[in-house]
Structure formats: C-alpha cells, structure tokens
Design a protein around this nucleic acid. Structure first.
Lengths: 217, 217
DNA sequence: CGGGATCTCCACCCCGGGGTGGAGGTGGGC
DNA sequence: GCCCACCTCCACCCCGGGGTGGAGATCCCG
C-alpha cells in the first residue's frame, strides 16, 4: 500500500503569483519522491493540467483569476477523483475554509509553511488524510459567529426589550408574551415597537432573524 | 526551523492493548527520524512518561482505563505545551472527535492507517498542523445536528416552498419575495400557506425560527 | 391517456401586528 | 428636588399577513 518512502508523488501547482509558483516548483522538486509535473496560473489552466497529467495531488491557491480555488477543487474532485486537492493560501483564517473542505479539499495550509510540511500534507492528501493549519481548524470548530456576536445586543436595548425579543424569537404572539411576562398586551406592544425602532426592524420575522444572528436564540 | 529530514522526533505511546502498543513501538521505530521513548497502558502512566521525557508528541488511544484519551490530551496540553497530541483510535467516526480536538489534539487517525501515515501525522503535529482521518473531518463539518437537522427540511416541502421559506427567513415581505422570485404576490401567499400547513407554523416569526433551526439560513 | 403533484394566479374575509400619541409610576443620578 | 430612563398601560388607525376556496397550466408517471 504505497509503503515505499520514495514512491514518486506527482503534483500539479496552481497559483497566480509567479514567484510563488516558481518557488514551489523549486522547493518541492528538492523533496525526495515528489515530482512537479505542471504549474498553472489560474483555475482553468490547472484543470487542464490535471486532465492531462492525472497527478496524485493538486496544490492550489484560493484567490485566482477566473475559476477560483474552491470551484477548481470542486471540479477536480468531481471529474478526477484520483487527484487529491490541497489548498495553500495567504490568509489562513479565511471564511472559505469550510466551503473548500466541503468541495473536497484534503488540506489547508499557510504559505508560511515550510516545504517539508507542504510535502507531508501532499503525501497525506494522496493517502486520504486531511492536513489543516491550526487557524483553519479553529474555524471549523467555531462554526462562524456570522459577522458579530458580542453576546449582548449592540443596539441600546433595555433588559426588558431583550427579554421580549427572545420570546418573539420563540415564535410567541404578543398575547402569549404578555401572559408569559405577566403584563398587559399593550405593554408588550410598546416594548416591541421600541426595540423595532432601536434595532431597525420592520416586523417580527426580521426580529427573529436578528435574535438568531445575535445569539439570543 | 527543523528543516533536517532526520531531526529525531521523540514519541510517547499510550494504548491499553498490548499488541497495539508493541506493534506501534516496532513499526514506528523502523521509521527514520522517529524515536519511541516510552509506552504506557493508561492515561495516568502516559502523563507520567510525558512529564519524564518531554517528548515531541504523545500518540494515544481514546478508550483507556482510568484517565481517558480526551482528559489525558487536555492535561498534556495544559501541563506540557511543548508536547503535541495525536489520537489513534479504532472507531474513526466517534463523537469524541470534537472534544478531543478542543482539548488540543493535533491529529485523529484510524488504527487502519499505515505506519508511514502515522509518522507523517506525528511530524505534522510537532510542526503545528493537524491531520485528520476523512471520517473525523466529516464529523467536524456537520456540527452535530443537535437533535435533528437532516439538512433537508423533514416535512414534505417542495423546492419552491423551501425557497420561499428561505426568503421569509431573510425578513422579506410577501411583496418583496414576489419580486425576487418574479411571480405574483398571490402565488407567494399560496406557497406560504402551504408550507405553514406542512411545517405546522402559525406565522412568519415561527417560520424564521424554523428556517434557522433547520439550517436554511 | 388519465391522474397527481407542482406552480401559478384570483377574490374575499378577518385579525393580529405595527405605528402614533399619549399617560402614570418607579427608581437612581446629578 | 428634579430629571431621565425604564416599565407599565390605554385608544385609535391601518395594512399586511394568514385562511378559504377556488382555477388553469405543466409535467411526469403509471
């Protein structure tokens, strides 16, 4: 099962930056058992090279002109299941981590990584395992707090208004909220109107959305 | 930066099964640049060995008598930050994936993996990167559906109804949805009524809640 | 071919939600 | 003591949302 440490691993590169491309060709070529069989400057060219050489692994950047890295990953995995994909990116803590992995990437590394580490990731990817940069891993484990979730509503909502908002998010009507809080329905309507004005909401549907996005539900 | 391919990597093992332990000692010992400096049969013994040898990596099983793998991982990472932890388990698709990684594990591999793959994971872990078995990765990407979230709405919603529901969850009015979908407002109302009936919803607020809880927003 | 599911649209009714402009009571801070 | 923030409640208006009961057009499947 590919046990020989010198089993030649074929690799295609994709990166729109010339220096990165050339650097990788040189550095990876120095590693024993790794052969760079092609280098492309955009996603489309990478796909062509993969189709031509059927490499073990495609090592690709994310940001590229035309077909981007995620799309390229998806297509490679769909059309050439024998080729694994490893993403090498400048921005390690990118929101594209999850999409890329869903698209079938078997690795996410920083351009800060040394050639050895990249080589290991390539071998692991060809072997089925996935290698992740720590920042990418933490992205995976904290499923993206959307844009902001300071855990307290940013607008100047009073405690009572937050309480009412949470009940709205549970799908309760004004009457139900009134009973729950043991106040009059008119009072609830007042709170509702106030919090709508403060948070810039038009109706309860938007309020529920707002509550979920701010972690109040 | 640890560039020499033969930099000796010190490893402590922990596994309660004698054969696995002995097998690993032998197989890993054969790999160039890896030195097994100790092997323990339970978590407590592993901790003692880590304290004694300060190895680069602890390779541990999860199910062990006494201190289990997750707890051992947590304590190693807390008390010996210089020692990385890689989990090697029989049950790849285990619910402990997330806890283990949260506890600081830098790898999750199957006992089916070959020695080479394990060696690579050990090196990657010492280097800061995380190596995951595909099954473990998929665990990470589907963040435990809590109680239920089969990713497609369980009720018999038609594609169009799901679409409308998603737009409701964005806080749009019927009129806005109509324009967005390029249909009449009456049509939207029909879809809304149908999906409310199917999903057991009373109003849009509950619909937004429903959408969020089923991952449609 | 006939039937069922889906998408499209209409008219009509009703009520709850949202907006406005009040008012009284409490408490804390200046 | 005064003011302000907050919570409480009221009356009134209006509209959009939700419910009912249709109907025609496709499309696919048996």
């Amino acid at each position: 099962m590919a046990g020989q440490p010198d089993a030649p691993l074929t690799v295609v590169l994709a990166d729109d930056q010339r220096i990165v491309r050339d650097g990788l060709v040189t550095l990876l070529g120095l590693l024993p058992g790794i052969t760079v069989v092609g280098a492309a400057a955009d996603g489309a060219a990478a796909l062509a090279l993969v189709a031509e050489h059927a490499p073990d692994v495609l090592l690709t950047d994310l940001r590229m002109p035309g077909t981007d890295g995620v799309e390229a990953t998806r297509r490679v995995r769909a059309e050439h299941p024998g080729t694994a994909v490893v993403v090498l990116t400048t921005y390690v803590d990118d929101e594209a981590v999850v999409p890329a992995l869903r698209a079938g990437a078997a690795g996410w590394l920083s351009k800060d990584a040394d050639a050895e580490a990249i080589g290991r990731a390539l071998r692991s990817a060809a072997d089925g395992q996935t290698t992740l940069d720590p920042a990418a891993l933490s992205r995976l484990m904290t499923p993206a707090p959307a844009e902001s979730a300071p855990e307290t509503p940013p607008d100047g909502l009073t405690p009572r208004e937050v309480e009412v908002l949470a009940l709205i998010a549970e799908g309760l009507s004004n009457r139900q909220i009134a009973r729950r809080l043991v106040v009059g329905e008119a009072t609830v309507k007042t709170h509702v109107n106030h919090l709508f004005a403060k948070a810039g909401l038009r109706d309860r549907a938007q309020a529920v959305r707002y509550a979920y996005r701010h972690g109040l539900a």
